[in-house]
Write a protein that binds this DNA or RNA. Structure first.
Lengths: 191, 191
DNA sequence: AAATCATTTCTATAATTATCGAAATGTTAT
DNA sequence: ATAACATTTCGATAATTATAGAAATGATTT
């Protein structure tokens, strides 16, 4: 859903700007590009910390690095900042933020319909949207960052439904989990 | 300081918006006012938690409550949101964010690294920016408006480093000093 | 290829923030 | 006033985020 992207984009933007040191970085970069070392000295932070802040800002599309001879030069992407500010001024942006609420309510309703009290799946919905709701629910049983052998994946999935193969296939198909090479391990993907 | 207020106001604004549940609240309130209870049900949060989020938004001036019959009705202050977005679009807002930074910290750090207790240069930095810091430091030994013959220039520069030729060349190259004609005198330039 | 320098990633810890349940406060209607 | 109800504050815990130092990576020069 499009407004889902909107929501996450805006949230990431605000989170990126919601730190004093990152705000200062934005201010400094609005004047001219700086290297990581320069910024860390100006802010009185470790270089690794500064690097972390910069990658946070970069993920939100607010800064970019260009390699310049001996060092990297970070600069501000004014266009992203403008685009975000203007989006806030648009009439229809705010109401769309509430769509995420409806989605959630929708998810709850689907889960209530297709799972029992113990959280097991009663039946597979025929509607794709509802099927995906179930998959998002199931994938939460896996820790991000951990690699699970297929046997363990099946063990975990069997807590939700006997047709573990169907669930496994769905999780991979809709990119909630990934698989290593041929018969390798599975792991959970971020959003 | 005025820009100090600017900074904290903006930071508070971003912090207020940097939470998924608060963003959803803003979205919901942009459609119509809600009570704490309504919001907490829609978001699936405890009422105390919702109240906490609302007070956070209120502190940033983004929502306000008016008492209506039996309940409180929270509504969005669109004007604050507009004012903040527009501020981000203004040319001079961003540069001001850097005022909180100690601009001279960088120069001090470089000087500390590359000069000894007596102020002599220990080594020439490879980074151009740092080299320029040293040059700006050295050039202060010359009075503006006075013309120095090359011999005297070398005498003064030798207080900082034996390689006076390097320093002389750097000072001219980066337009901190200028030279008259062929073998004439040097003088300090104003930035 | 080795050496040097800037940056990033990793690992661990400190600080901040979100959350809930219970108790306290405030508001409206009787 | 008091009863009934909505909201806030308090106290404690869970989750997230900021931070630094060490090790790994990437890029440039010799």
């Amino acid at each position: 859903m499009d407004s889902e992207i909107q929501f996450n984009e805006l949230l990431q933007f605000f989170k990126a700007m919601a730190d004093g040191n990152r705000l200062k970085i934005v201010g400094l970069l609005s004047q001219k590009p700086h290297t990581v070392e320069q910024l860390s000295i100006l802010l009185g932070l470790g270089m690794s910390t500064t690097s972390h802040h910069l990658s946070n800002l970069a993920k939100a599309g607010l800064v970019e690095a260009r390699t310049d001879g001996h060092y990297y030069l970070y600069s501000l992407r004014q266009d992203t900042l403008q685009e975000m500010s203007q989006r806030l001024l648009k009439q229809d942006t705010l109401p769309k933020l509430a769509v995420a609420v409806d989605e959630q309510a929708y998810d709850r309703k689907v889960l209530k319909t297709f799972t029992d009290e113990e959280g097991r799946i009663i039946a597979f919905p025929s509607q794709l949207k509802k099927y995906q709701v179930l998959l998002r629910y199931v994938v939460k049983a896996f820790e991000p960052g951990i690699h699970y052998p297929e046997k363990q994946v099946n063990d975990i999935l069997s807590r939700f439904h006997d047709d573990t193969a169907d669930l496994r296939r769905g999780l991979v198909e809709f990119k909630l989990m990934a698989r290593e090479g041929g018969g390798g391990a599975y792991w959970r993907l971020e959003d």
